[in-house]
Amino acid sequence: MSDYRIGDISKRLGLTADTLRYYEKIGLLQNISRTASGIRVYNDKDISRLKFIQRAQKMNFTLTEIKDLLQMREDPQHARTEVRELSHRKLAEIETHLQDLTILRNELTLLVNLCTGSEEGCPIIEGIEKSQDT
């Protein structure tokens, strides 16, 4: 397992040092070790947690929700009932989101293909305008 300084993590994940310190303060990151001179040292597990946080934030989960989900991630068998329920709810949200994304992807695929196959210009604009009208 490799060790990383706060600057390495910042560069790798695009998070500021302040954000990383804040995540530690509110308990999203735990047990971050320190060198003898007090410099934070992160490991691969911390990076994995941070990537999870970033993904969850993209899904608009709150930091409180993410903190609970991280508990589930750490020890799924012993997670509290509320945390299990939250995980179920979030899973359902993701499934719905995935379905919406799939439909959107299919629609855009069709429109892009129409655009390349049409000799009378691109019907994408017209398609989008019509869908906005409804």
């Binding site: 069709l110 129409l114 869908s131």
Partner: peptide, 17 residues
Amino acid sequence: NIVDELDYAVELGIRAT
């Protein structure tokens, strides 16, 4: 006309013409 019935076309799996 796919542009008129886009949702129906996507639902059926149409991806090209």
